[in-house]
């Protein structure tokens, strides 16, 4: 409640959205959709909005982008066409990051230099990745796709394990040697840590390796249509030694920017169904603003735990999809 009082635009958006859905529920005669437990079209839109709101809060805090939660859930529990899920997934992944960019930058949580350092590799990587996906699916078919998914699932599980083994040191990473390139580029920064009530300084390391990795993240994000925020946080935090909270905020901003190019082929192919994507987008915007304000006030350890759980869940989903595709079997409950 405190957040909405400080942000009149958030109040307006919540009022308009809730008002709109109440109006539709009361005054529009919407028929029940086939096979959806008697829910009408308006009901589905309102439920989608609520789900998206909670997904946005969790994804902004963890800096992973809602697509990582949305896409596996939709693929697992609905029969909606994968192309429509991927396009809506990109909207979900993008909009919480887009709207959270404002609060993150205002509070100095997202590092603008890191954003512009990583933007080009992620944008180009995403572009090349989506092109490669189209080309590979024509040549290798689903088997090749499954093998890549399994490899990615194993990689994500490994990153989650590194987060667990790394323990508290990953929240405020310390690095002995100073990177020459980072010093030359003036990649050192300081942010105000609300939970400690003091500024936290940090230096950036391994710039060249990180740029290559961010290109790879963009590539895989574009290739799978999941967005890439889930892997940007580990790259910033574990490779570049950026504090976890700054990594999560910077990742959200980078993710939104990176996906802005990838959405266009979906729009041009008619795969972005406005009425389906709209409640998810609105939930991401309102939830994104709430999440961005919650982030500065919560303990970094909480973000880390949330991230570990999300990495494991995503890894599980990727592995199951890979195995399902490769051996033509169905794994229940995953």
């Amino acid at each position: 409640m405190m957040i909405s009082k400080r942000l009149p635009e958030l109040q307006l958006l919540i009022l308009c959205t809730i008002g709109c859905y109440i109006f539709l529920e009361l005054f529009v005669a919407s028929a029940a959709l086939d096979g959806l437990f008697g829910f009408t079209g308006v009901d589905i839109i309102f439920i989608s909005f609520l789900l998206s709101f909670f997904v946005a809060i969790i994804s902004v805090i963890a800096g992973v982008g809602g697509g990582v939660i949305f896409t596996p859930l939709m693929l697992a529990f609905t029969s909606v066409d994968t192309l429509i899920i991927r396009s809506t997934g990109l909207v979900v992944a993008m909009f919480s990051g887009l709207v959270a960019s404002g609060p993150f930058m205002r509070k100095g949580l997202a590092d603008i230099k890191l954003v512009f350092l990583g933007a080009l590799p992620i944008l180009v990587g995403g572009f090349v990745g989506s092109m490669a996906a189209v080309s590979l699916s024509q040549h290798l078919g689903e088997a090749g796709d499954s093998i890549v998914r399994i490899a990615l699932g194993v990689l994500l599980a490994a990153i989650a394990l590194i987060f667990i083994v790394g323990g508290a040191s990953t929240e405020y990473p310390e690095h002995g040697q100073r990177s020459k390139l980072a010093t030359k580029l003036k990649l050192r920064h300081m942010y105000w840590e609300d939970t400690l009530q003091k500024p936290v300084k940090y230096n950036v390391h391994n710039v060249k390796v990180a740029v290559i990795l961010l290109f790879a993240v963009g590539f895989t994000g574009g290739f799978f249509g999941l967005g890439g925020g889930w892997a940007v946080v580990p790259v910033l935090n574990l490779v570049m030694s950026v504090p976890l909270k700054v990594s999560a905020a910077t990742s959200g901003v980078l993710l939104a920017m990176g996906n802005s190019a990838a959405i266009w082929p979906y729009i041009n192919a008619g795969a972005l169904i406005g009425v389906v994507a709209a409640p998810w987008m609105l939930g991401q915007i309102i939830g994104g603003i709430v999440g961005a304000h919650v982030l500065s006030g919560i303990k970094a350890a909480f973000v880390r735990k949330l991230l570990i759980v999300m990495l494991f869940l995503t890894s599980l989903k990727l592995l199951s999809r890979g195995i399902e595709g490769l051996f033509n079997i169905s794994i229940p409950f995953i």
Binding site: L98, V99, S101, G102, P103, F104, M105, R106, K107, G108, A110, D111, I112, K113, V115, M190, Y191, W192, P199, V253, A256
Partner: peptide, 15 residues
Amino acid sequence: PPIPISGVVYGEIIY
């Protein structure tokens, strides 16, 4: 600490 104006400009336009 001071907050970079370039970041604030970027964030506000998008927001």
